[in-house]
Design a protein around this nucleic acid. Structure first.
Lengths: 145, 145
DNA sequence: ATAATATTCACCACTTTTCCCCACTAAATG
DNA sequence: CATTTAGTGGGGAAAAGTGGTGAATATTAT
């Protein structure tokens, strides 16, 4: 296990579409990153290294499978490579802001090998909808040793 | 069994979100620790070693599976690695304070391989609600060898 | 093609938060 | 009673985050 992204952060998207990616996540991600449409109405942010290994995996998928083809299309069409500005911010293009319904307050979470960017509203709903079931699952994990 | 955490302690959360973790628990936990959302509205505190063994269990999960994705997201977004300051305190991020409804007085308990942090109110309620039932359970435990 | 307008991006200034340190009090130890 | 250890609180330097300005680039209109 080489990459470990964790934590929940609440930052602001400014009028120019910029957000600070928390420094603790930046340290892990490195300078060059890839932002793309994610699942569950969020945006996914990968280090280039992780992104490249993902690409390799996609390469092995059978393109005759319609689902695979669509999934890869989904992920790649929205993807852009970015760098941080001097203050540790990235600029989120309008089409991705709209995709994730981002408003001023956004939630940035670490999730193993990627960072996810959520609108505050969607994140709260996600937690509300899934909390009970997920705590049950984690209950098993925590207790079985 | 290598880790054995025990005891109940009542400490204060100060205005900066800091709590002292009792020194007896610190000795067992080691320097580097992981704090995360726990069960029953409490927070769980693990040594990195213990945390890593937990992580190994779901590192292999595929992110295309919705359940896996949600679960990893839930667990890791709540987690943060911490170190103690010179006085043996940790800083609890706002979102975790809110999660556990922490107010000034918090209850810190050792529970086998983890430390749990409770709000005083929730802890008292938990004890009140469960005491009778628990005495029955433990009765069985003590007798069966 | 040139001027006018808009967009992008690097940089600067400010505010807020975090973190490290010190000082004090309370409790435990000998 | 003196000395050490644990816990509490706060000040201040440094880092992180926020918002804006203006130059450079691109876009559009004339």
């Amino acid at each position: 296990m080489n990459i470990m992204l964790m934590g929940e952060y609440h930052n602001n998207l400014d009028l120019k579409g910029r957000v600070v990616i928390p420094s603790k996540l930046r340290e892990v991600l490195g300078d060059k990153i890839v932002l793309t449409r994610g699942l569950d109405n969020s945006l996914f942010l990968y280090s280039v290294a992780t992104w490249n290994t993902l690409l390799k995996k996609f390469d092995t998928l059978a393109f005759t499978e319609k689902d695979n083809r669509n999934f890869v299309r989904f992920l790649l069409s929205g993807a852009i490579t970015l760098e941080f500005d001097k203050q540790g911010r990235i600029i989120i293009p309008t089409y991705l802001q709209e995709f994730a319904s981002l408003e001023k307050e956004v939630v940035i979470i670490g999730s193993l090998n990627r960072v996810e960017i959520w609108s505050n509203k969607n994140w709260n709903e996600f937690m509300k909808d899934n909390f009970n079931r997920l705590s049950e699952i984690s209950c098993n994990l925590f207790n079985s040793n």
